[in-house]
Nucleic acid binder design. Sequence first.
DNA 1: TTTAATTTTGGGGGGATTGCAAAATTTAAG
DNA 2: CTTAAATTTTGCAATCCCCCCAAAATTAAA
Lengths: 213, 213
Amino acid sequence: MAEGLRERKKRETRQRISDLATGLFLERGFEAVTIAEIAEVADVSVNTVYNYFPAKEDLFLDRSRGIVDRLSRWVRGRDDGESAAEAVLRELRAEVESVSPRVGLMEGYSRFMAVIDGSPALKARLWAVGQDVLANLEATLREETGADPAETLPALIAGQINWVHQTAMSAIGREMMAGRDPKAVSREVLVLIDEMEGLLGDKVLNYAARGAR
Amino acid sequence: MAEGLRERKKRETRQRISDLATGLFLERGFEAVTIAEIAEVADVSVNTVYNYFPAKEDLFLDRSRGIVDRLSRWVRGRDDGESAAEAVLRELRAEVESVSPRVGLMEGYSRFMAVIDGSPALKARLWAVGQDVLANLEATLREETGADPAETLPALIAGQINWVHQTAMSAIGREMMAGRDPKAVSREVLVLIDEMEGLLGDKVLNYAARGAR
DNA sequence: TTTAATTTTGGGGGGATTGCAAAATTTAAG
DNA sequence: CTTAAATTTTGCAATCCCCCCAAAATTAAA
């Protein structure tokens, strides 16, 4: 599967447009930058921008697509005897504890969050992504437990697990945007995660334990 | 405080525009109806429509503003010895059990939900309203418990309570949209609420109990 | 009746997004 | 290497949401 010139160019063009656009957004905010301007800076036509990105938001949130199965992967990879919620808590803690940029714990994330915070369109889009994550998780829980389609529990458990994840992520976003130090935020969020775990009911904490009974 | 001619006319005009717009949306969907068309049907100028409604979505979700303090009111009105979560569960059950149109349990709600479901803009707006509800609830919990501003628990409890409410509401929306009978949905959702209560942790269920120390 | 305050309207324009067909580029074939 | 087919880029026109401003119409107040 050798990659031809055409494919490579397409990939490069797409990346260049996204990078330049992101730079402009970080500098001046989402709404202040026009598609026409991005096209000009990237030296392509406006239509070409739309050939690669269906909407303006996709220029900034290009990566967010890759995380729709994040929770699902964590659940699928749970250890023996470990429940779905426990696996998510463990993985989440690992990311936070290691001050991973994948959860936004990095220098410069504050500007990124500020751009999102300043744009209702971006916030709405992020929420939509979150909905996909939730639907995905519910489907995974159903598969993993072989639950009857009429069963409502998987959706509820997914909701609870998703709440933990979302709450942690938004806490990170909020604190980072406030200019806090990533390591300090990491410590705080770990405490927050402990607190959330303490609030969860036993049924949630034990749902879909691998190899149980 | 007699109401002058001017005020009455304004109120009537606003209502007429909203009603006509809603009718068109229900008939043909949100995006398929243009503001210009609404203005024409209402016999006003496009600018007048914008004088009353800041955005197109407000023409359809005009009422949703009045519910931002719904959960807060329920919590504030909790009985002696009753916690915040218990109060919300009680009020929610009462609404659902009485097949109240306020929670969407009514004839014709299916078409309403279908319009929302078919429009990302409307869904995003509803989510934003939900965020307001959540923020409101958190503030109320802080007030009611006199929690320290640095305390994170109120936000978490608010999140859990909000989850119950949102989940119940979206279940209603989903089932109603599927053309189910309101009374049947009412019964089902009551079961769902029981199930959710069974998932909540004790700390959540007992938070902010009135009169407790 | 005159004057002040408030609404409505028309006109203009910016910016996102879409559709279409022509032009440019890359690939494949001969 | 030349040519034809496939793919990408581009220009152009158009739709629609939304905003701004000043003139015109309407209502309230003096």
